[in-house]
Structures are given as structure tokens and as C-alpha cells.
Nucleic acid binder design. Structure first.
Lengths: 326, 326
DNA sequence: GTGAAAGCGCTAACAA
DNA sequence: TTGTTAGCGCTTTCAC
């Protein structure tokens, strides 16, 4: 292993000058800088991030805490975030909270111990408060937490949901059901609000709205419940693609054709949504922009006042799962 | 921030003793240990991993480099690995090589700069050699690399494939096609070998074997090619679940019923495989065991000689996508 | 513009 | 068993 002092010795300069040179500090003689750069290259010098981090009280790290990396949407987020970080020379650390607020707390805290440049957390449903990380900045992502001072970067869930439901109405649907996410999860509440805004309140006396987990299972259960009613819906807006896939399967089980008998719309635009038959109409979350915004906040020191929520626009992805009502 | 010296001062002992006490070293007086523990608790002491890592020349980190975390199988692997690491107080860092051997190289090297306890890499298809990481141990995972000294932990791909194909034969199928993975990727070669072993060589004069990427697209393309033949197969064994889903969709497009007309079997047992209609029969990779083995190698210093490949047993998951031939 | 020296928080060798 | 001390590799004052 070659240390900066080796580089300095070879270039015939002091350690301090070598440090200033390799880090591109201003006020370094051109000739000295050149000599140091050559020496560093010849020796194959690689800076030691641990030493640097210790000295600067800040590591070349960004930490991500998600409920479950196995969830395709979080995987997508992790990928974009990792990309944005490594472009700038930062490593991403990953932790799963497994939807447990306690695990999340512990994860955030131990991530902060490493003095990362920031910790990004996608809160669990049960998160009421994020721990104090002292000097380490916290950014909440995807789902915001009420009363949390950390800035949040999220999709415009409300508008996205409205756009989807408006599209369904434009197709001629009137009985549009909503398979909503769990109460308490901000993103779920907002998507439901977007749905309600377009429907003008609870349609069918609230019979058309069900709430539960964002997963496949619940989508299936909810769909069966919905279709068992006297006046079943002709379209279903689901708050996640996973739920939408569940709804789709429930339809297959009941012999309902999609989109001839029932239209289905999801949310997230995960890869899977294009691979179902028929492919799902869905609302794309601007994952790359979210990642860009987060790294902007953390690595470029973009100023944001506490309690700020940055809301990014979604995009309706129209595919074959929707058609006019029968 | 409270340093170990603060704890030492409060406990009225020297810094060295405090260090030994909090780290549970032998040869520390019970009373002293107690005093230090109390002081640490009262002060809310949290060790600084950066300082520790610098001094010990080894950080509390494990690095993972995968082709793409968005691939459900790698997400699963990352999750299990992260779980196993955090249980022992290690952080997991994540990097995507995007199936580029160059990016992978750079990723492994910069991961190694942080002096992690080890770097785990799932090689890209184009990887011919892994970079030298000096003191930092390397473990290859899921796909092994020929001629690479780093120990590998993989599934028994060959046996898994054989079991699946044997199951298909047991059902009565004779024309069983194979949608294989890309040549050069060890796991793909092995699964193909497993298929060939049961089929007793190339069936149909090799007309029933196609090779290509592990993805959905190729599964679809390959299936169409297969079914366009004079004597189409009655069953398809795909080397990945993503390919199998593609095959399934091709069948839907052609009006072939699964499993009445065609049986399909995948590989990996990703969550999606249970969510298709019909659900896919597939071969489960022992992801948790793989993760356990890897952490064993890295964190528990389990001895392995170079060029060793640890092969773990798979499990056939029988679901509705297979039935006797028409 | 450059060099010398201190010190980030910790562990481990050595002394007592 | 405990204390003292050096030093991990780096950045950053402070002199010059």
C-alpha cells in the first residue's frame, strides 16, 4: 500500500503540499502540482478513505435504509442512488428495516456512526419519529413522515393518482374502485386523496375503497371483496403495481377479462408492470430525479429549510390494461 | 460526540483499559470492566468505526458488487447478505456493475480501498479476471469465474437443472426444449449441462437448445423460435425465471395453454415466479445458505483454499405450470 | 506558495 | 491486571 507520504517523498515535497495538490486545492504552484500528480500516478497511489474520513469527520459514504430491498421499487431507487453516488466517488451502504420501526431506528443510528455524508431513509409504515443523528444530515425519501424536520423528497402522489383516475373516467368509467395502501403511510394517504379528488368524494358510499398493504396478496384479496359486491366496479385503481398484479390475478380467477370486462391501473411502473398480460397501465415515479434530488441535497449542499418536502412530478404510462367500460 | 477517552476519564481508568473493556478482551478485571461499562452506558458512548477501522486496518464493512440490484435474484441475495452482516455489526455497501466488466473492476477496487472485511462479487458475463485487492479477501458468488483464485459460493446449478428436467421427463415429456443462459457465464453453462445430462445429449439434433441473456425478452424470442419449428417442444426448461416468464408470454401470444399444451419450468424461484398465471414450477436457489456461507468465509475466517468452489443444493418447487404432455 | 507539526479516535505493543 | 505511548493515513492550521 502506498501512502501519501510516499508520494510526497518521491515528488520531493512536503506531505501537506502533496495533500493540497492531490485534492486540487487553490494556491498550489503549477510545477509542484505537476510533480505530485506524476509521482502519484507512478506509484499507483490510492487515497485511504478511512484516514480521510477520520480526519475530516465525514466519510465518503451515503447510507440508504429501505423497508425491503426486495421490493422492486426500492431496488430501483437503490440503483439510481448508487449510480449518482458512485459518480461522485461515494459509496452507498444498504440496510433493510424490514418494515420494523425499531430496526429502522437502529439502522439509522449505526449508519450515522460511520459519519456518512448523509443517511437516506424510506420510512416504515410505523415510523413516527426518526432518531437524532447529530451532525449527519437525514433525508426522507418516497414516504414522508409527519412532523419530521428532515427534508423529504417524494413523488407527487396525489397528482399522479388523480391523473390515473381521470384517465379512467375519460375512458367512460364511473364505478372506479380504489385499492389503497395502508393508513398512516403518507404516500398511501396521498394517492387515496388524489383518487377521491377526482371521484368527488367516496363513490358507492365508500364501498369502492379498501385499504391494506402495498403487496400482491392484498391486491388479490381486495379485488375479490370488490367484485363480490352487488354493483362491482368496472375499473380498479391500485396504489402499487404489486397490488395491481394481485387484482389482475383475481380477475383471471373469476374469469373476468382485462381490459374487456375490467380496467386496471397500478402505480410505480416497476419492470414487472410491463410484463403482465395484458401489460399494466401505471403511474411512473421519477426515480432518477428523486435520486438526483437526494444526492443534490446531501452531496452538493443544496440548501433546504427543515420540514421541507420536495415533490416531483409523475408520469402516466398507458398500456393495454385499460379500455372503455363494457 | 463522546469518545472512548471520555468514558475512560469518567470510569477513572486509562484509555487502554477502557478499550480492552469495551471490546471484551480477556485479562480485564471484573470490577474495572464493570466501571467502564457503566460509564459507557451513562455517557451513551458509540464507538467510532472510522477510527477503529483506520487503526485496525480493517473496516466494519462488507462490500457487495452485483450486475444489477434490480434483478430480483440479486436483490434477494443482497437482502440476505445484509441481514447476516448487520447481525454481526457489519455494514453492507452496494455497487452495481451494470454487467460491465470495467465498471466491475473499478467497483471492486474502490470498494477495497475502504478496507472492508471482504468484497463479494457476482461477476458479469464478461468477467475474465478479478482485480487484485491485496489484503482484502474476495469471494465470488452465484456465478464462478474460471481460473479465479477467489473462493466461490454457488448453487449446484447442474444438479438443480437435472432435477427439473428429470421431473419434466417423469411427467412424460420427450421433446423438452432448453432456453439456456449466455455462453461464458458459468452458471448458465452448468444448467445447460444438467439439462443435457438428463436428455442424454442434444435432443432434436440441437434444435431444442437456444442460448441468450437471462432476461424476459430473450425468453420470449427463444420461445417463438422454438415453437416455429416442425416438431415443437411440449415442455420448456428455462435457465431463469425471467426467461420463463418470457416463454409464458410467448405461449399466451400464440394461444398455447400452459400447462395443457406446454409445460414450463424456470430457475431461481424469485417472488414473481409464484405470481404468474399459472404459477411457475422452478428451482429454488438456497439464497440464505449462500449468504451464510459467504459471511462465514469473510467474517468467521472459515478456512478455504484458493480455487475452491462451495456448491450448495437447490430445491425443486413444483407449481401449476407443468403437466403431462397433451 | 510551501513546510512543519498537531491531531482525528482508536488499538496494541510494551512497561510496570 | 493496568497504564503509557506510539501511530494508523490523512487534512489543516500555523509559521515562514
Amino acid at each position: 500500500m502506498v501512502r501519501l507520504s510516499d508520494v510526497a517523498a518521491r515528488a520531493g515535497v512536503s506531505l501537506g503540499s502533496a495533500s493540497r495538490a492531490v485534492n486540487g486545492h487553490p494556491g498550489v504552484g503549477a510545477e509542484l502540482r505537476e510533480r505530485v500528480e506524476v509521482a502519484a500516478r507512478e506509484l499507483g497511489y490510492r487515497p485511504n478513505p478511512l484516514a480521510k474520513g477520520l480526519r475530516m469527520r465525514r466519510a465518503q459514504l451515503v447510507s440508504l435504509v429501505v423497508p425491503d430491498i426486495t421490493n422492486p421499487f426500492f431496488a430501483e431507487l437503490a440503483k439510481e442512488l448508487e449510480l449518482a453516488c458512485s459518480e461522485r466517488g461515494y459509496q452507498l451502504t444498504l440496510r433493510n428495516s424490514m418494515e420494523s420501526a425499531d430496526t429502522e431506528r437502529e439502522a439509522v443510528l449505526s449508519a450515522a456512526d460511520h459519519n456518512p455524508r448523509g443517511v437516506v431513509v424510506v420510512p416504515t409504515g410505523g415510523t413516527v419519529e426518526l432518531p437524532d443523528t447529530g451532525e449527519v444530515p437525514l433525508v426522507v425519501c418516497d414516504r414522508s413522515v409527519a412532523g419530521c424536520p428532515a427534508p423529504a423528497v417524494v413523488s407527487d402522489n396525489r397528482l399522479g393518482a388523480s391523473a390515473a383516475v381521470a384517465y379512467l373516467r375519460g375512458l367512460g368509467h364511473e364505478r372506479i374502485a380504489c385499492v389503497a395502501g395502508p393508513a398512516g403511510v403518507r404516500a398511501a394517504d396521498e394517492r387515496l386523496a388524489g383518487y377521491l379528488a377526482v371521484m368527488g368524494g367516496m363513490p358507492g358510499g365508500g364501498q369502492l375503497v379498501t385499504r391494506g398493504p402495498f403487496d400482491y396478496e392484498f391486491g388479490m384479496v381486495a379485488a375479490h371483496r370488490l367484485f363480490d359486491q352487488d354493483r362491482p366496479p368496472t375499473a380498479v385503481f391500485a396504489s402499487s403495481d404489486q397490488q395491481a398484479v394481485g387484482v389482475l390475478h383475481a380477475c383471471v380467477q373469476r374469469g373476468l377479462r382485462v381490459p374487456a370486462d375490467v380496467s386496471i391501473c397500478g402505480f410505480d411502473a416497476i419492470a414487472l408492470s410491463a410484463l403482465t398480460s395484458p401489460p399494466l397501465t401505471t403511474v411512473r415515479q421519477p426515480v432518477r430525479q428523486i435520486a438526483a434530488r437526494v444526492t443534490g441535497l446531501l452531496l452538493d449542499d443544496e440548501a433546504v429549510s427543515p420540514y421541507t418536502t420536495v415533490s416531483l412530478p409523475t408520469e402516466l404510462v398507458v398500456r393495454e390494461s385499460c379500455a372503455p367500460p363494457p
